[in-house]
Design a protein around this nucleic acid. Structure first.
Lengths: 162, 162
DNA sequence: ACGAGATGATTGATGTGTCAACAACTTTGA
DNA sequence: TCAAAGTTGTTGACACATCAATCATCTCGT
């Protein structure tokens, strides 16, 4: 198990690894830049507003939002506190399950997402779609889920416990 | 310029966008998990150690490291302070340009990167290379730089000023 | 009906990234 | 030689993510 057995990356592999690292780093930071410049908003806030605005319900519970975004509850809780302070969302306690709350968009929140969405979609379209061919889209659609599958800690597959 | 003109994403596009978002989010977090579990190290620290260990020089200036990693100087400075406190790197003032310092690997830093590298390479190999076909590697190698080019704020291209 | 354990959500401590301001030094150009 | 401008690096304030601990409430089995 020593490092003599390590299969180091060859030059081609190093090259691709470098590209992926840059992509992983640059893309989110470019997206954050776009959102904060165009809409004075952080990408997390946008995500939350988007989930709320796309929901059929007028309000959601934090757990539903967290689940949709695959986020930690704690992270969401901190963010919701800040967003409520900014007046983007409203919170009221859930009458059915009194542990939880109902989170909804305030009028200001609606306005914020309405204003931000077109510019954000434009950024996504220009950076991802206009710059690639349909074949390249298809390639990403195939390759990335394979990588995701490889890094996802495999769960017990809902196999009966014995 | 109103939102009526916005070309919203169709279903296929939304699907790909969702995949990319998940990839961008999951991959770095899986990588951080691997590094912190296997090597009690954060990805930024690993990057710095890797740059220093791969360099032909025995020490580098922060600007060179920052340039190599395409990082903010400030970010690097904060990280170097923490790494020096942990004993991973050494710092001494540069005699030629006394604004700067020379950053080098301590013995402990060498040991840390030697121990961490095999496991980290294994993670990268398993998640990126073993899970994809050569054709898929090639596709990523083509597509991702195009996206990077689309999001990089174009600079004046070293065109003479008039 | 009741207690044990599960679940929803928050909080505080801590580590890290970002931004703007700054200090120290070097370079440039007259 | 000297002042202006540029470069290198640090710092402090702040925003955000993560982790463990905690509290309130619900659910389930008895």
């Amino acid at each position: 198990m020593g490092s003599e057995d390590t299969r180091w990356l060859n030059e081609r592999e190093q090259n691709l690894w470098q590209i992926i690292r840059e992509f992983i780093w640059q893309f989110p930071s470019a997206m954050d830049r776009q959102l904060s410049q165009d809409s004075a908003m952080q990408s997390g806030e946008y995500s939350v507003l988007a989930v709320l605005s796309e929901s059929k319900e007028t309000s959601l519970r934090p757990a539903e939002v967290a689940n949709e975004l695959r986020w930690d509850r704690s992270r969401l809780s901190h963010l919701l506190r800040r967003m409520e302070a900014k007046g983007l969302i409203t919170r009221c306690s859930d009458t059915l399950d009194r542990r939880g709350h109902q989170i909804g968009l305030s009028e200001q929140g609606w306005q914020a997402i309405r204003e931000a969405a077109p510019l954000h979609v434009q950024f996504v379209r220009e950076s991802l779609f206009d710059s690639l061919t349909p074949a390249e889209h298809a390639a990403l659609e195939t390759a990335l889920p394979k990588i995701l599958a490889a890094i996802t800690p495999r769960e017990p597959e809902s196999v009966p416990a014995d």
